[in-house]
Each structure stands twice: as C-alpha cells, then as structure tokens.
C-alpha cells in the first residue's frame, strides 16, 4: 500500500485560524515545504473491519460490545453493517513537529495543521477503498469522543480493531492516541442492493 497524500490548502488555513481569509505567499510556501518534509517521514496506513451490529434505543452493539450514543445511532441510519476504521500517519509526523517546536515555531503550527489535513485525506482514501471493495455506499465517519459517544469507548474500539498490533497506534490512560495523527471512526455501510430497494 503506497499512498500519496495531499493536503487541502483551505482546510490547513482553517486549522490555522484564517477563517476564510487569504494567506500570504510566504505562508503558502511554508505550508508546501512542511508538506514535503512530512511526506518524507510519514508512514500512512489504515485498516478496517466490517461488522454486523445490533441497535438498542440508545446504543449499538458490535460483537457483544455496547457503544452508547444516540447520535451514533442516528448517524448510522439505514446502514446495513458498520465498519470500524482506523488510520494513522505514523510516528514520523509527531517527531518532525516536535523537532519544529524546538527550532521553528511557525512550522510547528503549520505542521500540526498540515498533518491534520493529511490524516483527513488518508481517511477519505481509506473510505474510498471500502466503497470500491465492498461495492457499497458509506455514511460519514463518526469518531469516539464526538457528541454523546464517550471517548472512553476508545478502549473497546482498540480491542475490536486490534489497533496497536495492526496499525501501531496505542492508547494512553487518558485515551490519547499515539501517534497523535491518528483517527478512529465508525463508518456506516449501505449495501448497493439495499439502496436500490429503497430508491424504488
């Protein structure tokens, strides 16, 4: 799996607080330089696992484990199955940004924003692959810690997806993920047949 990730300039600027205002050329150039440095050190990877799931009034149950969240429940609307999805840029991004933080503060901030945009792009690529492989449609990603889905469910999520072994992402006691440029998410899967039935 060799992945070429791209950043989205508007997204990077938004993370940096530009609120739609344009950036000067020097900043744009710096973003691009940081992006190139990041490309040298990142090791992007993603994994997913498709599960049947059960619904209750306020939770979903995956492989016997309950994830309590009404928002997640409504988010998965019409989904036939659910994929547990995990992605990471690897430790290289963290090390580079840490290095910047001692030598070049502007690049520290730009590195954070650019890496965040890259991990979003990685998730998009991963979800595209799920679509093609399974021939399905996907609901938008929904991550532990969003809305009423408690961050502490990361522990169960990690177990189900075997994140540390398969992706090299580990969970601290505070549920922080390391490497920090990592994402976990539930993705609702709508099978093509199901969708057709609904349309007609």
């Amino acid at each position: 799996m060799r992945l070429l990730l791209k950043y989205d300039t508007n997204e990077v600027l938004r993370y940096l607080g530009y609120r739609g205002k344009p950036a000067d050329d020097r900043t744009l150039k710096m973003i691009d330089e940081v992006y190139k440095e990041l490309c040298k050190v990142i090791t992007p990877k993603y994994i997913y696992k498709e599960y049947e799931y059960e619904k209750t009034d306020d939770s979903i149950i995956v492989n016997g484990i309950e994830f309590k969240s009404k928002k997640l429940l409504s988010h998965l609307k019409n989904s036939d199955t659910v994929a547990l999805f995990g992605a990471t840029l690897g430790t290289g991004a963290d090390t580079l940004i840490r290095k910047y933080s001692f030598t070049d503060t502007p690049r520290t901030a730009i590195g954070q924003a650019t890496a965040a945009s890259l991990v979003e792009n990685l998730c998009d690529l991963g979800c595209e692959e799920i679509k093609t492989t399974l021939g399905c449609e996907l609901r938008p990603r929904f991550s532990p810690g969003y809305s009423d889905l408690s961050l502490s469910c990361q522990a169960d999520f990690f177990k189900l997806l075997d994140m540390s072994k398969r992706l090299g992402v580990t969970l601290a006691d505070s549920y922080l993920m390391t490497p920090s440029k990592s994402v976990t998410a539930f993705v609702g899967i709508i099978k093509k047949d199901g969708e057709l039935n609904e349309l007609y």
Binding site: L13, L16, G17, D104, P106, A109
Partner: peptide
C-alpha cells in the same frame, strides 16, 4: 483583529 494569523504571529515572535 484577524489580519495577522498564527504563522505570522509566530514568525514575528521568533
């Protein structure tokens, strides 16, 4: 006042 942004602020500070 949102005319200078984080990268610019940090560049000036450095």
């Amino acid at each position: 006042e949102n005319t200078v942004f984080l990268p610019g602020l940090l560049m000036s500070a450095e």
